[in-house]
């Protein structure tokens, strides 16, 4: 349910997301003109038509299920964040006005989730991973797949957060259902987008070469961003752990609570030997940061 219908979100959430979307789109208009120049119209038009057409196709996944392409990661990889945001906004606008897929009042929220956050995060993850992994076709396809998975999962988290902030459902329930659902959708999106980009790379490499050439991503910047995101996410998880854990709730439901873990945790329930849960959280945060930094530096050194 990435396309939220009308009636789900509260006024502050609608206003906040609409404001954020308008600001991001204004920036995207400015940037897109700078990167695409004269060819902006035909490129954005063709991509918008293509995203609509591709969303109508159902790809069999081979496990008795099929999925259709969402397109946010694909346009981020094809056009970069600015052009991608404008294309996805155009798609969402037409879907809301012409096909009533997603509400008109909720257009700001849907734009924020899919066009701004979805395309923006996909472009960031793709740019960073491409800088680290290098320009080989397989590496680019892998970076695309990872970008699709991360961005779809983030959209799920954003939708869950918006529903919770609107007072409709508790955050943990929304995160489990909507966020979990989006991780599954993201896996399908990752497979489809990765495969599609690898075929496009072989058949028409110039389509992709366009915006990735002058990329500002260097391996060190990419690693720094990755480590920062990991650090923020770890902090968020620690902050959220005052609420009952989703995993623990699931274990309790299935009658597995209270069993001894196979591997004892260094700080069970965030009880640090040197202080309260926040100290344990900070120690974990620093450890996670250092591990991520070390691994990424090692990969970056090998590639450059």
């Amino acid at each position: 349910m990435a396309h939220l219908p009308d009636g789900f979100l509260s006024i502050p959430v609608l206003a906040g997301t609409a404001g954020a979307s308008a600001a991001a789109l204004a920036l995207a208009v400015h940037r897109s003109r700078a990167t695409l120049g004269e060819r902006e119209g035909p490129v954005l038009g063709a991509t918008t038509a293509f995203v609509f057409a591709a969303q109508m196709l159902n790809f069999p996944l081979g496990i008795g299920a099929s999925a259709h392409l969402l397109g946010a990661a694909l346009v981020a990889v094809l056009l970069g964040p600015a052009g991608g945001m404008l294309v996805m906004f155009g798609v969402l606008l037409v879907q809301a006005l012409l096909f009533q897929d997603g509400g008109i009042a909720a257009l700001g929220a849907n734009t924020f989730n899919i066009a701004v956050l979805g395309v923006g995060s996909a472009a960031a993850v793709f740019g960073a991973l491409r800088a680290v992994l290098g320009p080989r076709p397989r590496a680019v396809a892998l970076a695309t797949a990872a970008a699709a998975l991360v961005s779809t999962a983030l959209v799920g988290v954003a939708v869950a957060l918006e529903l919770a902030l609107s007072g409709l459902v508790p955050f943990t329930a929304a995160l489990t259902l909507v966020g979990g659902g989006h991780v599954l959708i993201g896996l399908a999106e990752a497979v489809l987008t990765g495969m599609l980009v690898s075929v496009v790379l072989r058949a028409r490499p110039e389509v992709l070469a366009r915006h990735t050439e002058g990329s500002r991503w260097t391996p060190v910047r990419a690693v720094a961003l990755g480590a920062l995101i990991l650090a923020v996410m770890t902090l968020a998880v620690v902050a959220a752990s005052s609420q009952p854990d989703v995993l623990e709730a699931a274990l309790e439901r299935f009658g597995l609570a209270g069993r001894r873990p196979a591997v004892p945790a260094p700080f069970p329930d965030y009880a640090s030997p040197t202080g309260g849960p926040w100290v344990a959280g900070v120690i974990g945060l620093v450890a996670a940061f250092l591990v991520a930094w070390g691994v990424a530096i090692a990969i970056a050194r090998r590639r450059t």
Binding site: P42, V43, A46, A53, A54, L57, F59, G62, L196, V207
Partner: peptide
Amino acid sequence: GAAGRRHMLIGVTAATLGRAFARGERTHD
């Protein structure tokens, strides 16, 4: 089969993408 159909559809979609770009530029010109 499912895998063959998936590959076929991916190939068709990639070809359509290339043609859509070319047509977009032609139409715009």
